[in-house]
Simulated scan of single mutants.
Amino acid sequence: MSPLTDAESQDRVVAVLSCERLIHQFAWHLDQGSPATEIAALFAEDGIWELPTHGLRSEGRAELARYFGSFSPQITSRRLCTNVMVDVLGPDEARGTSYFTTFRVDGPPTGDGPPPPPPVTQVGYYTDVFRRVEGEWRIARRTTTVTFAAPMPRTDANVTVGR
């Protein structure tokens, strides 16, 4: 295998950074309660998101937008994405993995300021396939694997929601 040219090396760096940004944008948009169409736009037109252990799968931007649009606006969450690794496989394809840690509280605001920090509710990892489409990197497939899960605390009652 011959060494990469400067242009090829630069293209790889741009690909890695673009894919890493998609990983972080996904978490940011979910945490901010962004419009579902913004989350779906991170995916290729035929993109897939799946959580096999829960039998969940959405394919295509319209279906992705419906799924992500079904989330309650009364969720307060923060996702931390770490151990991000992206491998460029070719000029238009890359694969990646990243860990996520989710802090989440369900329910309406209490009116007393922000809720106290919740415990960690999920820890897991994403396995991603990225594809460059018309010069822009998109998520072609995201598989979510939950390694640890705890009940979701609620702000409006002394109960938790199991997930």
Rank of each mutant, 00 (worst) to 15 (best):
A27R: 03
G90T: 08
R21W: 07
S72G: 13
S77M: 06
P109E: 08
G60W: 14
G47V: 00
R78E: 02
Q32M: 12
G90F: 14
V86Q: 03
Y126K: 01
Y67K: 01
P116M: 04
S58H: 06
A94T: 06
P91F: 10
I139T: 02
T101V: 04
G33M: 09
E59L: 02
I139S: 10
R66V: 05
V129R: 15
L80Y: 13
G107W: 10
E38P: 01
T82K: 12
Y126A: 04
F43I: 00
Y126H: 05
F71Q: 11
F103M: 10
Q122V: 00
L42R: 09
L64V: 04
T53I: 03
V105H: 15
E45M: 05
S34N: 07
L56S: 02
V88N: 12
E45I: 01
P52M: 07
A36P: 00
A40Q: 10
A62V: 11
C19T: 00
P108A: 15
T53M: 12
T127E: 11
S70A: 13
G96S: 08
E45Q: 12
E45W: 13
R131S: 09
G90C: 12
T37F: 05
R61P: 01
R78Y: 06
R66Y: 07
G113Y: 14
P109F: 13
S34K: 14
G135S: 07
A62N: 13
H29V: 00
Q122L: 03
P91M: 10
Y67W: 09
R138M: 01
P108W: 13
E20L: 06
G60I: 04
F103N: 05
S70P: 05
H29I: 00
V129K: 13
V133R: 15
P109L: 09
I48H: 06
P35I: 01
P115W: 15
G69Q: 08
I75T: 10
F71Y: 15
D106M: 12
W49Y: 13
A41F: 04
Y99S: 04
P117D: 09
E59R: 09
G55L: 06
E136S: 14
T102V: 12
Y99G: 04
H54Q: 12
L30T: 01
P35K: 14
V120A: 08
E93R: 15
V129L: 15
D128T: 00
L51K: 00
T76I: 09
R131Q: 10
L30V: 01
F43E: 11
L42C: 04
S70M: 05
L89N: 10
G107M: 09
G96K: 02
V129E: 14
G90M: 07
R79T: 02
T110I: 02
T121D: 12
S77L: 10
Q32D: 02
P73M: 14
L22T: 00
P116S: 11
G124C: 02
G47E: 10
G55K: 03
A65N: 10
R141S: 13
E136Q: 14
A140P: 06
Y67M: 09
L89A: 10
E45H: 11
P91G: 15
S98K: 01
H54W: 10
I75G: 11
G90H: 13
L22F: 07
L42A: 05
R141D: 15
Q25D: 02
S34Q: 11
